[in-house]
Amino acid sequence: MNRSAVLAPVWLWLLLFVALPVVIVAALSFSTSIPGVPPYTPLLRSPDPANYAMLTDDAFYLDAALKSLAVAGVSSVLCLLIGYPMALAIARAPDRWRPLLLLGVMLPFWTGFLLRITAWIGLLRDEGWINAALQAVGLPALRLLYTDFAMYVGVTYAYLPFMILPLYARLSRRDPALEEAAADLGADPWTAFRTVTLPLSVPGIAAGLALVFIPAMGEYVIPELLGGPGAQTIGRALWNEFFSNRDWPMAATVANALLLALLLPMVALRARQ
């Protein structure tokens, strides 16, 4: 078979729709916002780093970056704490139960992102299920929706399957003989887990953390719907620069900074290996 006939359409698509857009974002970040269509000075006509100066001068962007780091960090750790025992329990379940147990993890994921957030709004709002339950037992109502707490719970809930699936893939390939050997040699279950199962599952943990952390860093929808006005993340900053302020070059600058912040650590890791 002529290999280039297979490769050419894919290459063309990847260069046009993946590589070129990233180049345009980089070029646009050195452009200036003007009224008009399109609302920016022609690309690369007179490159101006002013947008990057703004990025470092205005504390708003640094705060947004820190907020996004907090959201991504807290929720990926929460996903790991909830997801690891679940993945391990599924991996150790009898063979015929496993597909059904996995389906149980995936089902809420297939119902749609926004509708899962809708469910949490119904739970957390002032007249929601949690407050109704609190008042039913005589406790005072709590402000839950539009808080950081709601945002952390929402992100954790939305991304939990992305943690469980790679962990399960790794844990289900484990060799039970290794744990039995540890037990035969006198290790209690906890020691066997700590010295055998856990170290062997490290690649699954890394994959799960990356799959939750990276999208959570750029998350816009959950901070917007659950987090309230104080939850200004990078994703919201980018969105508002674009849709509210109509400052496309600044949005591109924020996008470029986010891209570099995500890519550079990956490249550095790759280089060290």
């Binding site: 729709f17 345009i24 974002v25 990276i214 999208p215 750029g218 816009y220 980018l238 591109a252 891209l259």
Partner: peptide, 17 residues
């Protein structure tokens, strides 16, 4: 690349394209 880039980045870059 698409698997590891957040949605806002993908959306903005494709719009600009």
């Amino acid at each position: 690349a698409r698997l590891v880039l957040p949605d806002v980045l993908v959306g903005l870059s494709l719009l600009l394209l």
